[in-house]
Design a protein around this nucleic acid. Sequence first.
DNA 1: GCTTGTCCTGGCCACCCGGCCAGTTTCGCA
DNA 2: TGCGAAACTGGCCGGGTGGCCAGGACAAGC
Lengths: 123, 123
Amino acid sequence: MSEPKTAEIVLSLEIDDPALADRLAALLGNVAGLRLAAPGETAAATVVARDPRSMPEDIALTQRELDVLALMAEGGSNKMIARQLGISVHTVKFHVGSLLDKLDATGRTDAVAHAARRGVIEL
Amino acid sequence: MSEPKTAEIVLSLEIDDPALADRLAALLGNVAGLRLAAPGETAAATVVARDPRSMPEDIALTQRELDVLALMAEGGSNKMIARQLGISVHTVKFHVGSLLDKLDATGRTDAVAHAARRGVIEL
DNA sequence: GCTTGTCCTGGCCACCCGGCCAGTTTCGCA
DNA sequence: TGCGAAACTGGCCGGGTGGCCAGGACAAGC
């Protein structure tokens, strides 16, 4: 049957820019061994290009705020973060407050979610 | 100058599976109009395929738990979630407790982080 | 010198959170 | 018909959280 020993690789596209999406679809559609995924089909890999306009620039966080933010993302309480960084709980609460301001968040959970969305931290 | 009116599209690869990465690199390397990114180069789009072995299967969360989880990720408090879902705060706390158990988290922030890592929710 | 920014600390307090106990209803399945 | 799972509700309470007030140390830059 001469079955293809290496099946076609199914690719899906997640491109914000319509022009780029078109060009990529045209280019990739003609590659032997490749196939673009049908709607809803599970792809082996995905081509992604998120709109960079949605992240104007990194929010200006101080080093200490990044320290606290990272430990917050690990689920650490103020007390645990204080111990970890060798500072007082009050200071941790101070930095958390600054983070809530800068990240426009209503609480620590929201702050971590926003930071992750903007790529400030990696989950 | 005959500059190409459509410049080459630069693609980067982020593939966990080495075999798939090789096949894709070989296929995409020969496409006219496409070029694979050099290390460190900013690409117009990225081909991603995360290792599916890292998520054996979705953790068994009930529909209600997913509802609560989604609102938690938005930074909602128990009270706000209760209003949103039209249930009592006690019930929200009940579901949050189940989520902390199933997600092996120490608090709601940790739960959201874990859920995001495992792909249960999208930030 | 003076201001600005970052980092640090303290107290106070209303509120929220998570864990514990208890119970109800509804549903599907054996 | 009984039984478990899921969803829902209540009270109670210790500890955590976030907002507010106040202050000090220290380096960079005008």
